[in-house]
């Protein structure tokens, strides 16, 4: 294809957006809404995922040692725990610290009782944070077999609840996302098919005068791509605005903020470029390839 012809076809693509204003606008809206729904729900899910994993992190596994172990044994276990798989962080808590914590948890009046004790009943312990809370029972079983370990306290029930919740949410989200994508594709391809159908006469004439399929497709492809790109940019703007205003709402309300544990939620600025590229890419691809696929039937003359 000659360059002058290529530029002509690209111009035709731009021109036909204007010529078919109504259909172009309809495709634009459909792509916009579909992508917006998909994009915003993805962002919501990503944040929810972070919130849950933050809550998961609050759950510590506590490893209690046998009574009266020597410093050397403590150090050995410390090292061993650090090297255990799925253990992210190990914090040593001496028996004195443990007693102090225990005392503070109770009223001052009762704390006197502890002062009367002449021996500290608290064992030496380690507080452990895990990488993956769903593997909690494996890790705990493993640690229980270590030397000098008396018991391991783990929030099994709560961990299981969180893990299940996350899995369930992911499945629901997966379904929602899948449904959204399928519905979008159907609607988009229908919209495109309508706009192609309106111009089937034109396509037919082109076939009779010896236009190759590439020649006929190029303007439609360009047109679809431009509509998709514009929809992508607008989508990005709307997402940015709505996302930031929801985040402002959370940030301005301390109760919500703490309740949802949002302290390291996704900042839009950090992912802004990726979101823009994804939207534009998907928009252009959806609309351009949708057009090409819908044209197939009309090209067989």
């Amino acid at each position: 294809m000659k360059w002058s012809n290529f530029t002509y076809l690209v111009k035709q693509g731009f021109g036909s957006i204007w010529k078919n204003k109504l259909m172009s606008f309809a495709s634009f809206c459909i792509i916009l809404v579909s992508m917006l729904l998909t994009g915003i729900s993805s962002l919501a899910m990503m944040n929810l995922n972070i919130i849950i994993s933050n809550i998961e992190e609050l759950n510590d596994v506590v490893v209690f040692m046998d009574k009266g172990v020597a410093e050397e044994q403590i150090n050995t276990l410390h090292e061993k725990l650090k090297q255990t798989p799925n253990v992210r962080e190990v914090k040593y808590r001496s028996s004195d610290e443990a007693l102090e914590e225990f005392k503070q948890r109770y009223d001052k009046d009762y704390s006197v009782i502890f002062d009367k004790l002449f021996e500290n009943p608290m064992p030496e312990s380690f507080i452990i944070k895990l990488d993956d809370i769903s593997l909690i029972s494996n890790t705990v079983d493993n640690i229980s077999t270590f030397n000098d370990v008396e018991t391991v306290n783990a929030p099994y029930e709560f961990a299981r609840f969180l893990v299940n919740m996350r899995a369930t949410l992911m499945i629901i989200f997966g379904f929602v996302l899948f449904a959204l994508i399928v519905v979008s594709l159907i609607i988009i391809s229908n919209a495109v098919r309508t706009s192609v159908f309106i111009r089937r006469k034109e396509i037919n004439i082109m076939k009779y005068v010896g236009a190759t399929n590439t020649f006929i497709r190029t303007p439609f492809f360009v047109e679809g791509m431009i509509i998709g790109l514009i929809a992508g940019v607008i989508c990005w703007l709307l997402t940015k605005l709505s996302y930031n205003s929801v985040m402002d709402l959370f940030n301005s309300n301390t109760a919500l903020f703490t309740a949802f544990g949002i302290h390291d939620n996704i900042q839009f600025n950090e992912i802004s470029l990726v979101v823009l590229l994804l939207y534009c890419g998907f928009g252009a691809a959806l609309s351009a390839f949708g057009t090409m696929i819908s044209m197939g039937k009309h090209l067989k003359v």
Partner: peptide
């Protein structure tokens, strides 16, 4: 397409 370029066609409905 190349073959059709060797023919001129006129239709009843002009097209």
């Amino acid at each position: 397409a190349h073959f059709r370029r060797t023919i001129g066609v006129v239709f009843q409905d002009f097209r």
